Simulated assay, not measured.
Amino acid sequence: MSQVSLRPRRSVLYMPGANDRALEKAKTLAADALILDLEDSVAPDSKVDGRDKVCAAVASGEYGKRELTIRVNGFDTEWHDDDLRAAAQAGPDAVVVPKVNSATEVHAIESALESAGAPDHTAIWAMVETPVAMLHAEEIARASDRLTVLVMGTNDLAKELHAEHVPGRAPLLGGLSLALLAARATGKVILDGVYNEVKNLEGFEAECVQGRQFGFDGKTLIHPTQLEPCNRVFAPADAEVDSSRKIIEAFEAARAEGRGVVTVDGKMIENLHVDNARRILAVHDAIRELAQ
């Protein structure tokens, strides 16, 4: 993971694509990335209008350094093909596709985007939100170089599992782990699912902490009030940054002196610790760059 290619995705906020006020407000929010939504948040009779609005938003250049993506409607809807064509021509940072269940579907998305003239920088973000997707997560993640991010759809996953939403998410841990393993095995970014209780910020922060401990790169959000705790939890703490710098400095000094054993604060340091320290500093620097 290089500092050049790394892009912070701590907070990825869904914004309703047919809502002018929401699209305008999104320009000022401290989200690392935005998902301009054409699916769940847009009523059937507003789908075409919403499509026009999000494509215009992407083309406006008014969203600063925020990563800008469009979530299209699913494969089984009448709007899917037109959404993909319009999104390809708008050229967002990524197109988010719901309920991706197989490598075959990824190939179909990629082909449709390329046929419609999508620029090389427009990635695919695949939402994995069904039992089938959990069991085929690696093949989905590995299907295309254009696919860069897996997005957990935890609400739909819970529905299909007949599972309850409970603190700690015990019923979902198997699926979360499978998707995480797939992302890490294939070198892809993975985003945690949404937290539904927008007024329960204590519960939300606890789930952010759990997500970071699991290894998620960030979390998808449904309300701007969730931005601050999410950005804070998924950013390296000052103590982590300081410790990472010490580890790298000690390792490089030892290597220059021809020493094979390195200790920092009484702990033995190996290559894996150095790799992790470099990753933490890369995330830290990327967040600072985004804020400038």
Rank of each mutant, 00 (worst) to 15 (best):
A57D: 11
V4S: 08
A26F: 10
V149W: 07
S144C: 14
N73K: 00
A185K: 05
R9S: 14
P236Q: 01
C55F: 15
A26C: 08
G218N: 07
E202A: 09
A90R: 12
R212P: 09
C55L: 11
R232D: 05
E202N: 04
E62K: 03
K199Y: 01
D120I: 15
K25A: 13
R255W: 06
G258S: 06
D156R: 01
V132K: 07
L178V: 01
L68W: 06
K246V: 03
A250T: 01
E114L: 15
G17A: 08
A108Q: 09
E240H: 00
Q89S: 15
L150H: 00
H223P: 08
A59S: 13
V261T: 00
T263R: 07
D238M: 01
Y195H: 13
N19I: 03
E197D: 10
D93M: 08
V96S: 07
D275G: 00
G187R: 08
A158M: 03
L290Y: 11
A237T: 04
L161N: 06
R7W: 03
E207W: 05
E202P: 01
V58F: 13
T104Y: 09
V261P: 05
R9D: 14
H165Y: 13
V95R: 05
G168I: 04
H223D: 11
L157F: 08
C55K: 06
M268Q: 07
G175A: 00
A253D: 08
L68I: 10
A90K: 14
S41H: 03
R142W: 09
A94Q: 07
S5A: 06
D265N: 06
W125L: 11
V209I: 12
G258L: 02
A26P: 03
T225R: 13
R259W: 01
L157W: 06
V106K: 04
H136M: 13
S144R: 12
D192I: 02
V283F: 12
I247G: 00
G64L: 03
E39T: 05
D217Q: 13
I35W: 02
S2I: 01
A143L: 07
A256V: 06
N101G: 08
Y14C: 00
A158N: 04
L201D: 04
K159Q: 02
S46C: 04
S102K: 07
D275A: 11
M15D: 01
G64R: 04
R288I: 00
E270H: 06
H284L: 02
G153I: 06
A235W: 00
D285R: 02
T28D: 12
E138S: 00
M127C: 05
A253R: 08
T186G: 01
E105M: 09
A182E: 11
